[in-house]
Amino acid sequence: MTKKHILSILVDNEPGVLSRIAGLFSGRGYNIESLCVAETNEPLVSRITMVTKGDTAILEQIKKQVNKIINVIKVADLTDQDFVERELVLLKVSAKPENRAEILRITDIFRGQIVDVGQEHFTINITGDAEKITAILTLLKPFGIREIARTGSIAMFRENKPKS
């Protein structure tokens, strides 16, 4: 069964590493839904958070193939684990005077912020997991979404909960 997976990949922070991973995915016909890369607290290591799709067998191959790349230190599949996921989205929405109050209310409910405002638009900053982002996009769509910039998901395991 095809399913969305979030992979957290630790790699050497070196030129060309992203290209090795992206090339592996295109070369083997794997799917990348989103990709997010930045340095970690250790300057020689970067974390790549990748959202990909596939059935169990494909995912197993993906993880093994990624692990096989010499510059990859660790691959963790967060799916089916307890984890926190966040994505940052900037949304430019048409905001006619008669809609402004409603848009502000929705933004508020989703704990977003207006980061730019004009005669005819709001730019809204929203963070959350995939479901939350989908939900606000659905609600704001009728007003007219002019532009979207998304970071793609980043994610982390939750620490083990204390035993009760």
Binding site: S19, G23, G27
Partner: peptide, 14 residues
């Protein structure tokens, strides 16, 4: 050549 041979080497270096 590092770019070209990335998918057909075990590893490569510049």
């Amino acid at each position: 050549i590092v770019g070209i041979t990335r998918p057909c080497t075990k590893h490569n270096y510049l």
